[in-house]
Design a protein around this nucleic acid. Structure first.
Length: 157
DNA sequence: GCCAACGTTGGC
DNA sequence: GCCAACGTTGGC
């Protein structure tokens, strides 16, 4: 296990940072990931306690909106078994699940950090989320990037 | 709505 | 195993 920090995208129309912060345990199953690379990050590389940048995508104001942590290791994503779910996968069975998800606990809401802001910091230029054409919904964040981001993540009064 | 990027599918 | 076609993502 190498990575300890992650950026995780969510569409706020589906699950926003506010949705998670106001849910009973401040937790959400990261259901709906249907990309093997992202799944493998959750299955192989994530550990409880890993730091998470909560990112809103496909919305009016895309960017980092919160801090979170991995709260539980990967388990089968139950939406793959539900024929009424948009994430239903007919090739998945409970004996042979295809898709797994970790549980994420939201910690706090941060000021919105837009892509244009991230681009201003040389140390952050390598972030996958800034790469042209990047579509991966879960990406590793280096300790250097994580540390450089901290001053930007302090909640305003 | 546009479109670039990229993952997946399926015929061969 | 190749690769063209297709579908999806996601910023703009």
């Amino acid at each position: 296990m190498t990575a300890r920090f992650w950026l995780m995208k969510s569409e706020p129309s589906e699950v926003s940072i506010d949705d998670v912060l106001t849910s009973p345990q401040r937790c959400v199953e990261w259901f709906g990931v249907r990309n093997y690379q992202a799944r493998n990050f959750m299955m192989r590389d994530m550990s409880v306690g890993d730091g998470v940048l909560f990112y809103h995508s496909s919305c009016a104001e895309p960017g980092i909106v919160g801090l979170a942590r991995v709260a539980r290791a990967a388990e089968p994503d139950i939406t793959q078994f539900d024929p009424s779910s948009p994430y239903f996968d007919p090739k998945a069975t409970s004996a042979n699940p295809r898709w797994y998800c970790v549980k994420v606990e939201a910690l706090l809401k941060t000021p919105l950090i837009q892509l244009s802001t991230l681009r201003q910091y040389p140390v952050l230029q390598g972030m996958r989320v800034l790469a042209k054409g990047n579509r991966l919904s879960i990406t590793p964040v280096t300790p250097e990037e994580w540390n450089a981001l901290q001053p930007l993540l302090i909640p305003s009064a």
